[in-house]
Amino acid sequence: MKIVLTAREKSIDTEMDPRFGRAPFFVVFDTEWGSYSFLDNEQNLNATQGAGVQAAQNVVKAGADVLITGSCGPKAFQVLQASNVDVVTGDQGLIKEVVERFNRGELKAAQGPDVESHWV
C-alpha cells in the first residue's frame, strides 16, 4: 500500500504540512517495501489557480492508496475519491508519528472535504 503525506521539507522528522494544494513536497511511503521517497509538488506554488486539483492529480499519479494531510478542499477531494484514494484529514505532528498512528489504525478516512473551496 502507498501512503502519501504533505511535507514542508524533505525529512520525515519534520511536521506534516497542514496545507494540501500548496505543500512543497509529498512523502510517499510504500508499506510493502518499508521504504519512502519524496516528490516535488513545486509546480503548484506559482499556479494561477487550482492548486488543489493539480496536487490531487500528482497524488493519483504517484499511485497512492491513502492521502494524509491537514485539510482537503472539495475539488481535490472529488478527484481523489474518483481515483479511489482514501483521504485522512485533521491530524498533525511529525510525519513519522502521523504514519505510525495511521498504521496502528488510529486515523480514519474522511467522508468528505473539511474546508471550503479556496476559489483560486
Partner: peptide, 11 residues
C-alpha cells in the same frame, strides 16, 4: 489546461 481545471481519474 494551464488553469488546473481538469484532473484525470480512472473514471
Amino acid at each position: 489546461c494551464r488553469f488546473n481545471a481538469i484532473a484525470v481519474t480512472p473514471q
